[in-house]
């Protein structure tokens, strides 16, 4: 259960998972209060169903590589990303991460709707571990990237989801992180901004950032990633180049679809 973070190591492994498993307890119904807990306890109904979101994952990712995570909904992609970001900790096994992480699991997740965009930028920066001084220096650049000059004094609750995403992306990529984690976030925003984000990711990749990328559309994966992991029901099914993985994955999904229709 040890998690270590050490400075950047060039070329070596920067993410290493050894036999990592994540377990959830699913109660028949979710028990989250004392009253139900006692009733169920007295009735001896307090049984938990164990559910492994990830099973014995072994994965080594080297500095500077770009990886795609592919799989159906609920296959464990986001869980794997959360494990690497230290949002989740492994039930068994170890997760080693070297270097700084810029997580983009949901852009602008930490935004407080009642605060203005400007106030939120500073809080979001602090959540990512940046100092206020650093954020003041970067503030201009963030606003420029998000192209939201006229809206900085507006409370976030009046923002559209696209505007929120712009701001979130701008804050998340102000530093050149060692590891960039992108989960389905490029689906929001207009095409021009999506293009801009992709360009920024490419720029970071050229600088040697490691990328972990989740997308359900094939095109960006093929463009950005050199390796792919196929996850199925919490286990690694295949590791190869994206082209090869898709060659197996597409027929698999097509079959699943036809089965689903027959049912």
């Amino acid at each position: 259960m040890e998690e270590t973070i050490i400075g950047r190591t060039q070329g070596g492994p920067c993410i290493k998972l050894t036999n990592a498993s994540v377990r959830f307890n699913i109660a028949g119904e979710k028990v989250d209060n004392l009253k139900e807990y006692f009733i169920k306890f007295l009735k001896r109904e307090l049984r938990f169903k164990e559910f492994y979101a990830l099973k014995n994952i072994n994965l080594t990712i080297n500095q500077g590589e770009s990886w795609a995570l592919i799989g159906a909904n609920g296959a464990g992609k986001s869980t794997l990303l959360k494990l690497i970001c230290r949002i989740l900790s492994p039930y068994r096994g170890t997760v080693e991460v070297h270097g700084t992480i810029a997580p983009m699991i949901e852009l602008g997740a930490g935004f407080d709707p009642n605060l203005t965009a400007k106030e939120n930028i500073f809080i979001n920066g602090a959540v990512l571990g940046h100092s206020r001084k650093f954020m003041r220096e970067q503030y201009e650049q963030i606003v420029n990237f998000a192209e939201l000059w006229d809206f900085m004094e507006l409370p976030i609750k009046n923002y559209s989801s696209g505007m929120r995403a712009r701001l979130g992306f701008a804050v998340a990529t102000i530093v050149d992180p060692d590891i960039l984690i992108v989960d389905e976030v490029l689906a929001v925003g207009d095409t021009a901004f999506q293009e801009k984000c992709r360009a920024r990711i490419q720029e970071l990749l050229d600088k040697g950032t490691t990328l972990l990328f989740v997308s359900h559309s094939k095109q960006p994966v093929l463009e950005l990633c050199e390796k792919a992991v196929w996850l199925d029901h919490g286990e690694i099914k295949m590791i190869d180049t994206p082209e090869n993985v898709y060659a197996e994955y597409d027929p698999f999904m097509a079959e699943k679809r036809t089965l689903g229709i027959k049912k």
């Binding site: 970001c85 949002i87 997580p103 699991i105 949901e106 997740a109 930490g110 959540v127």
Partner: peptide, 9 residues
Amino acid sequence: ASLLKKTYV
């Protein structure tokens, strides 16, 4: 919750 689910703090 919304924050803790998405970033490490």
